[in-house]
């Protein structure tokens, strides 16, 4: 299938991602009353970009690009909640540093935002993630799906998102049918804005997921199982985040078993 906007194909998908994440943030702030500390909107992006720049200078990298840290920063703004100014500064530093500290071949091991959130959840009692903040509106679900698929289509990683959502839906419907629950329950669980945001914008990160299609499908299955385990077995929140962080450790093994060329952002390809 040809992309809908074929002439835009040469542009960096991260530009779309930035505009869509910004739109979601504005929508969340003004229509869903997100409980975001106003400082966060200023401190997180600026600290993220500065951190990236510092690593760029320190490691004498050829091209400085603010797009990646901006994407991580916008994701942090959407997910991270805290009343501590210190943590608003620390979160983007940890997030961006993870890209430079945990490297393997030409990839980084963790999705940066995921790593930042999980680390702070583990180390401090001062942050939280509000999975309920998006509500369960069907329209919103469609909006997410539409916008998100555009991004992943550009990034050629639609397979992992789709596979994950299918696996996760199978788990939810399977559980409901085993418990004899009405279908409204798994449907309610699937209409979660947090789930869609995770699938479209965090899991789809081409720099941290396995290189081969088979690897990505396996990875999607593991993450779905892990998330369900945390939610329905351990009865803890943020199952998606914990699961992704845990299975990211297995990406090098998956890539060794099922190898392929690592992903390059289009801008690098042209060079």
């Amino acid at each position: 299938m040809k992309p809908l906007f074929a002439h835009l194909h040469y542009y960096d998908p991260r530009v779309y991602q930035i505009s869509i994440l910004s739109t979601l943030l504005i929508y969340g702030l003004f229509f869903l009353d997100f409980d975001v500390n106003p400082w966060a909107i200023i401190l997180i992006p600026s600290t993220a970009i500065l951190t990236q720049y510092a690593y760029h200078r320190y490691l004498s990298l050829p091209i400085f690009d603010a797009k990646s840290p901006l994407i991580s920063a916008l994701s942090l703004c959407l997910l991270l909640r805290t009343n501590s100014i210190t943590l608003l500064l620390l979160a983007p530093i940890i997030t961006i540093s993870s890209k430079f500290l945990f490297r393997w071949r030409e990839k980084h091991l963790f999705n940066p935002t995921n790593f930042g959130l999980v680390t702070l959840l583990l180390l401090t009692e001062q942050i939280w993630v509000s999975p309920g903040q998006w509500g369960n509106g069907t329209l919103l679900a469609l909006l997410f799906a539409g916008l998100g698929s555009w991004v992943i289509y550009q990034a050629n990683r639609a397979d992992i998102t789709l596979a994950f959502l299918i696996f996760y839906a199978i788990i939810l419907f399977g559980r409901a049918s085993w418990l004899g629950d009405p279908l409204t329950i798994p449907l309610h669980q699937l209409q979660s804005g947090a789930l869609l945001l995770f699938a479209f914008f965090m899991l789809s990160d081409p720099k941290t997921t396995p290189d081969s299609r088979a690897g990505r499908l396996l990875f999607a299955l593991l993450v779905a199982l892990g998330a369900a385990f945390v939610q329905f077995w351990l009865y803890r929140t943020n199952g998606l985040l914990w699961s992704l962080a845990f299975f990211s450790l297995l990406t090098p093994i998956i890539d060794r078993l099922l190898p392929n060329q690592p992903y390059q952002w289009p801008i690098h390809k042209e060079k």
Partner: peptide, 14 residues
């Protein structure tokens, strides 16, 4: 002890 409680599977509105 720690702070505010919210629902994770339904939207919270002030």
């Amino acid at each position: 002890q720690k702070g505010r409680v919210e629902t994770t599977n339904y939207r919270n509105v002030k």
